[in-house]
Amino acid sequence: MRYSRLIADMLRRYIKTRYFEQMKKKKGRSAKDSHSNLEISIGKIFQEMNREHGPIFVPTEENPDQVEPFFPVSLLSTIHQTVERMIGSKVPGFKIEREMQKNNGELVCKATELSLYFRTASYGRKTHPANFQPSELINLFFEIAKKDEFLDEEFRNKNFPSRQSGKIVAEIYNEMVEQIRRSASTREFKQKLQKRVRASIKNFNSAVTYVTELFTLHKKLLVVRLNCYLPSLSDEAAMIKQAKDCLRKLSNNKRNNLLFADVAGFLWKLEYHHKHGYYFHFIFFYSDDCDESSVDLTHQIGQYWVTPLTKGGGGYRNCEESSNEFLSSCIGIVDRADSVSRNKLRQAFYYLTMKDQYLRFGAGDAGKRFGRGGVTGGEW
């Protein structure tokens, strides 16, 4: 037993070392190159998050008892990429020149590469939920756009007079661009941005390394994916505690439950939905000894979650029913030699881990949100 465990430990160390050596060689390339040529654009990630969350409703400023739809999650992609373009360029939003040949020497606005994002500036007036944690770039946009000098402007016509005396709206837009650039250049901002990106990359690398280890020990794996919901509580802190308690019970009780006898490993992600509150996204990897179907196992795990673990107050959903491309994929048997299915699995990991650097819901102090088990059925 000790010898087999020693061999397994050696294999894990070897695989992990080899994987990170490959990642190190790719350092400096674009995100899609650094992560197995996954080629998932930021726009695509936001699009799938929109399918996952749907429209979000928030209290209106005039009447807190009424709600209005917050703009779609996918539209945040526009804001994120707008700020990205502003920071990555040195040109103004508009080139403004005084045309001396015309009457009164009126101002003339000439378009630049940033002029395309002019109307995006109006989105800053939107209200967003308190538990809404956008990317550092989106957060910076809201922070600047809600300043007094920008909040009341109508970013519709660049030549319209500004609410500020003696200026046109295009000049106000240029000032907003410059303020965003100055704030983005600070050390504090860069550190916050890097911290969030590093956390996502760390989780992605952990998931890929982990499943690589599992496929070293198993020729085939049966992948089961489901969302497990918690009983609704008004207190967010109590809901987080409840989530951790349920996860701990699941981990402690697994050794005595035949339902998990053939589990080779699993991944979990603590998520938040504005309708359901906190919930877990689980990915279970059953060994090739398992003769159950993914549908049957999903139902059995879901029932186990609902009845013993949440005392009938929780719920579950088979991810095959999801319209989100990265939640409904890679369910069922995946062969070690099937490079297409394994790459789809990596895409699913990429989405689950990388989306947090662009948008995250729930309390900022929810603690650890991503985890994995061991590499054998007896230790996960």
Score class of each variant (00 low, 15 high):
residue 274 H to Q: 10
residue 272 Y to N: 01
residue 73 V to H: 02
residue 240 I to R: 02
residue 323 S to N: 07
residue 250 L to W: 10
residue 291 D to V: 13
residue 263 V to R: 09
residue 43 G to A: 05
residue 126 K to Q: 15
residue 182 R to Q: 11
residue 308 P to Q: 13
residue 24 K to Q: 14
residue 8 A to D: 15
residue 31 A to W: 09
residue 296 D to T: 07
residue 318 N to T: 03
residue 240 I to A: 02
residue 303 Q to I: 04
residue 301 I to T: 06
residue 140 L to G: 02
residue 34 S to V: 02
residue 7 I to E: 15
residue 149 E to C: 07
residue 52 E to A: 08
residue 125 R to Q: 15
residue 337 A to T: 12
residue 66 Q to Y: 09
residue 243 A to P: 03
residue 367 G to H: 03
residue 362 G to D: 06
residue 207 A to T: 04
residue 310 T to Y: 13
residue 195 K to V: 05
residue 68 E to D: 03
residue 5 R to Q: 15
residue 272 Y to C: 03
residue 221 L to S: 07
residue 314 G to F: 11
residue 108 V to G: 01
residue 92 P to W: 15
residue 111 A to Y: 08
residue 262 D to W: 00
residue 192 K to N: 10
residue 155 F to K: 01
residue 49 M to E: 11
residue 206 S to G: 08
residue 203 N to Q: 11
residue 252 N to H: 10
residue 225 R to M: 06
residue 194 Q to W: 04
residue 149 E to G: 01
residue 192 K to E: 11
residue 293 S to K: 12
residue 327 L to F: 11
residue 340 V to F: 10
residue 39 E to G: 04
residue 115 S to K: 12
residue 331 I to C: 03
residue 128 H to R: 13
residue 157 N to I: 07
residue 54 G to Y: 01
residue 6 L to C: 06
residue 102 K to G: 02
residue 174 N to W: 03
residue 279 Y to P: 02
residue 163 R to F: 03
residue 131 N to W: 10
residue 220 K to E: 12
residue 6 L to Q: 12
residue 227 N to C: 14
residue 354 M to V: 00
residue 92 P to A: 13
residue 1 M to N: 11
residue 63 N to Q: 06
residue 337 A to P: 00
residue 155 F to H: 03
residue 267 L to I: 14
residue 259 L to M: 10
residue 337 A to Q: 10
residue 176 M to A: 03
residue 247 L to H: 08
residue 265 G to D: 02
residue 278 Y to L: 05
residue 155 F to G: 04
residue 49 M to S: 00
residue 164 Q to L: 08
residue 74 S to H: 08
residue 175 E to L: 11
residue 122 S to C: 09
residue 281 H to G: 00
residue 173 Y to L: 08
residue 372 R to I: 09
residue 343 N to Q: 13
residue 333 I to R: 12
residue 307 T to P: 00
residue 79 I to V: 15
residue 34 S to G: 13
residue 48 E to I: 04
residue 207 A to M: 14
residue 282 F to P: 05
residue 58 V to I: 12
residue 280 F to T: 05
residue 40 I to N: 06
residue 162 S to M: 05
residue 227 N to D: 15
residue 68 E to R: 10
residue 106 E to V: 08
residue 206 S to F: 12
residue 157 N to F: 08
residue 237 A to L: 07
residue 228 C to V: 14
residue 171 E to T: 04
residue 168 I to K: 03
residue 313 G to Y: 08
residue 17 T to R: 13
residue 112 T to D: 13
residue 50 N to E: 11
residue 335 D to M: 06
residue 201 I to G: 01
residue 212 T to M: 11
residue 217 L to F: 14
residue 269 K to Q: 04
residue 15 I to K: 09
residue 111 A to D: 14
residue 294 S to G: 07
residue 2 R to C: 07
residue 216 T to R: 07
residue 155 F to P: 03
residue 375 V to F: 11
residue 171 E to F: 02
residue 292 E to W: 10
residue 153 E to P: 00
residue 57 F to V: 04
residue 36 S to C: 05
residue 332 G to I: 11
residue 339 S to M: 05
residue 186 T to W: 06
residue 126 K to L: 12
residue 144 I to P: 02
residue 213 E to P: 00
residue 251 S to T: 12
